[in-house]
Design a protein around this nucleic acid. Structure first.
Lengths: 255, 255
DNA sequence: ATAAACCTTTACGCAACGTAAAGGTCAATA
DNA sequence: TATTGACCTTTACGTTGCGTAAAGGTTTAT
């Protein structure tokens, strides 16, 4: 049986354009070209198209598919396994997204003003994720996997009330910081109180506290511009001031 | 606090290009442009960017996001709900794909030649899906939802052994058909035996049998080019021959 | 003064096709 | 037989969300 483009297209449920495109990129060449320049496909091509569509269904890129079906050296099992991992990741992400949307919808139905609510779940996850992506490697090296995993777990399990308290405390710290930075005295009582508040704030996400870890974080507030930018939003030099206050608080530095 | 492109980019973890692009498409305009033509963003823009990234995380298109955050008329809850449905569909599909890949890998590990094995699970699903997409509406109208759902379920639950038997029977039918079509006698004993085999073949996926349904399907083999193309692969006029044989077998037509 | 590190606009590239546009081919019908 | 209408062809631009030069101006630090 021989098929022209449209015939094969109908048979397989894809468009003629797609078949021409596959020809163009060398993924599926017709068996022959007839005297009028028409593409003619045979049974072999139909079978190969089935294979192509099978992999395409699995979200494999056409490039990959080409390798899989044309290169006999290609380890198909390995490819499938790699692909399986990709799919699993996608699904995990989708699960999270769905969860977030569900929560968001629910909270909106509850009549809660969406402005802040909508971001809640997403932000928690974003926090965890961002921490991982931005600081994951460095921090995991410094503090070890267990501590970070525990921290992430704690963050994830936080109730919304906790989360809001944490946010408020954060605000308070920032405004106090903006105020105190002008005094230029990180050893003052107020500054030490601020450092204590900062510890409390940390404890919302940290599973355990150590002065060393607190001091280490303080150093990072200055060393890493992503942190310093955050605190310098409050006031110029805020990151440095906070660091010094914490270093004194933790006893890492004498006034 | 004011941010240039790079500052905001670092702060939010996206690229400068992305910020310029968002400016370009009107999704996020800077607070102002300074005397040197630099984009300057303020706190308001930072907040809005948070919102944008929140929705982007949910795989909402930038176009949609624009409507959501700029248009006060826009029903955000409705949009989220729509989006939720999309995500759910995606996940359902992903679940299927993952299942297929798992099975495929498993079967390959079992040392079974992949050529046919790999397609097995995928093909079953593809069969169900294709049936739905291609004939779903027409057939559901004709036979009712219950019957079709039952058929799909049966197909899905088929063991591989059954599936292979079905495939073999299919082959046998096709080759017998190719042979018999030359006799041009759909009422012959052999042709009637063929019709019986066709019934058996059907029973692999049908949950119950009726002569009317069988005859109806036979008519469709000729009427619908997607079916007729399939059978005419075996031999010219095969679809018509098979239909006639079935019509006689079911008593819908006298020889 | 000069380099490093910013900033700008313009513009091509990516994946996997959809969608004209402009023109040849083939089968059936008036 | 001439003419539809349904095919077929190639060429080429549009889509999404940016990445990545290229070519040049600005700011900051040394």
């Amino acid at each position: 049986m021989e098929y022209t483009v449209q015939k094969l297209a109908h048979l397989s449920g894809i468009s003629g354009r797609t078949l021409r495109y596959y020809d163009q990129i060398g993924l599926l060449k017709p068996a022959k070209i007839n005297s009028s320049g028409y593409r003619i496909y045979g049974q072999k091509e139909v079978d190969q198209l089935q294979q192509i569509l099978f992999f395409r269904e699995l979200d494999v890129s056409l490039d990959e598919i080409g390798k899989i079906i044309h290169d006999p050296e290609y380890d198909q099992t390995e490819a499938l396994q790699q692909h399986y991992k990709k799919l699993a990741k996608k699904r995990a992400r989708l699960d999270r997204l769905i969860h977030t949307v569900e929560k968001t919808i629910a909270s909106k139905k509850g009549g809660v003003p969406m402005q802040d609510k909508e971001k809640f779940e997403g932000f928690k996850e974003k926090l965890v994720e961002e921490n991982e992506e931005n600081y994951g490697k460095e921090i995991r090296k410094k503090y070890g996997d267990d501590m970070i995993d525990a921290s992430n777990a704690k963050l994830r399990n936080m109730t919304e009330a906790d989360f809001n308290k944490m946010k408020e405390l954060e605000k308070e710290i920032l405004s106090t910081l903006a105020h105190l930075v002008k005094t230029e005295d990180p050893a003052s009582d107020e500054a030490q109180e601020l450092a204590a508040k900062h510890k409390n704030w940390l404890m919302y996400s940290w599973s355990s506290y150590s002065k060393e870890a607190h001091a280490g974080l303080a150093e990072m507030y200055v060393a890493d511009e992503r942190f310093s930018a955050y605190y310098d939003k409050a006031a110029n030099g805020a990151a440095t001031f906070l660091r010094d206050a914490i270093l004194i608080y933790t006893g890492s530095k004498n006034n």
